Amino acid sequence: MTYRVRIENADGEVVTIEISADELREKGLTLEELLPPNARIVEVEEVEP
């Protein structure tokens, strides 16, 4: 499974990243732990691999 994640950074700019569930598991991280300081998740969407 892959996630498309929209993130708002500290400057108010919204960027989109895609990350797979396998990648998260391998790194032992959650989506929140990948965020840079002062950023927030705006939207998470599951996409087909």
Rank of each mutant, 00 (worst) to 15 (best):
Y3K: 07
E48L: 14
L34Y: 14
I17E: 00
L35G: 01
V42S: 02
N38M: 08
I41P: 01
G12I: 00
L34R: 03
A10L: 10
N9R: 13
E8G: 02
E13I: 13
I17Q: 01
L34M: 12
E18H: 11
T2Q: 10
I17G: 00
E23V: 10
I19R: 00
K27P: 01
A21H: 07
V15K: 06
V47A: 05
E46N: 07
I7V: 09
A39L: 05
R6H: 14
R40L: 05
E43N: 12
L29W: 07
P37T: 07
E48F: 15
G28V: 02
D11M: 10
E23R: 05
V44L: 08
E13V: 12
E43Y: 14
E26D: 10
E48P: 14
P37V: 07
V14F: 13
M1Q: 08
R4M: 07
R6M: 13
A39Q: 03
N38E: 06
E8H: 06
I7P: 00
E13R: 13
E46Q: 10
E8I: 15
A39F: 14
E32F: 08
L31S: 00
S20E: 04
R6P: 00
V5M: 04
Y3C: 10
L29M: 12
E32D: 08
E33Q: 14
V15E: 09
D22K: 13
R40G: 02
R6G: 03
P37R: 08
R40C: 07
E32Q: 12
R40N: 04
I7G: 01
G28H: 07
P49N: 13
E32V: 10
E45R: 10
P36Y: 03
A10M: 11
L29K: 10
V5A: 02
G12N: 03
P36W: 07
I41G: 01
E26K: 11
E45M: 13
T2M: 14
E18S: 08
I19N: 00
I41W: 04
E48M: 15
V44N: 01
E18T: 11
E33S: 11
E46D: 04
I41H: 02
E48N: 14
R4T: 03
R40I: 09
A10K: 08
E46A: 12
V44T: 03
E45Y: 11
S20G: 07
E46H: 08
E18Y: 15
V47G: 04
D11Y: 11
M1Y: 09
E8D: 02
E48R: 14
V44Y: 06
S20D: 07
R40Q: 06
S20I: 03
R25C: 09
L31R: 00
G28D: 05
E32P: 07
E43K: 10
N9V: 11
L24K: 01
L31K: 01
I7T: 02
M1P: 15
E18C: 14
I19M: 03
E23Y: 14
R25D: 06
D11H: 11
E45W: 12
T30H: 05
